[in-house]
Design a binder for these strands. Sequence first.
DNA 1: AATCATATGTTGTATATGCAACATTTATTT
DNA 2: AAATAAATGTTGCATATACAACATATGATT
Lengths: 133, 133
Amino acid sequence: MKYELHHCISSRLRKLARIADGHMRNCLKEFGITENQMTILFALSKLGKVEQGKIGEALVLERSTVSRNVKLLEKQKLVRKTTAYRPEIELTNKGIALVNELIPHWEKVMDSYIDLLGDYGTAPLEKLEQRLK
Amino acid sequence: MKYELHHCISSRLRKLARIADGHMRNCLKEFGITENQMTILFALSKLGKVEQGKIGEALVLERSTVSRNVKLLEKQKLVRKTTAYRPEIELTNKGIALVNELIPHWEKVMDSYIDLLGDYGTAPLEKLEQRLK
DNA sequence: AATCATATGTTGTATATGCAACATTTATTT
DNA sequence: AAATAAATGTTGCATATACAACATATGATT
């Protein structure tokens, strides 16, 4: 056999994502949002006001997934969307405040990740990102 | 700011997993199973007859997730589970046959991953696995 | 301008996933 | 042995995710 079955790359990435998610979830509990919602809020924090489609493009998420996630964030009044057919999305003041409040906690989780990764740092992650697109 | 928001490690791993999954899904379509079902079938192929709990342990999956995934595989008669309260799970002949039939296709996807990763190979992935537990 | 093609948003459906709550079984303590 | 604790399986609930089908809007062709 060419490869060991448990060396399956997509399974392994999925597993790593589950592990990392578990860590981050603990941090997010008190803020009432999920890991993915955080990701979208962070993306909006960087992108400003953008077409909804751009979010999926940046995060490699299916249109429908973005649509639903944005709806959840809208329900929490963390983002605002225009009423156009191709709406533009942006953080509300509440969303901005949440991001700012969250950042120090998120940084602590990041610190612990960096600590775990030790001398490797995020280099292995970056290498994967460079190649796996 | 200590880190860039888009450098969030858990988000990035999640994104990488989505990308890798997308590739594998194409391969699995014709076999009528999903990426996660494949992962469990592969694990059983290696582990033989095991307690259901061992699957979650090996794959870092919550008990309930394993319970449901196994149920789906059972419905397809790809795995068999004993009726005990803590059931033992194993591949059926149909499951074994599917795994064997799938392997060459899976290997092609793995080849393409290895090709993508180029000179890095799976080293970055292994480094992450060593540290992120 | 009207038509056709393309792009994008939404909804239905199915699986993936985790957590909490509950059920049951096994292990431990007294 | 009885009672308590710990482990494990299942179910309800919520979100995450993708795909297909549909709706609508935008762009390109004629």
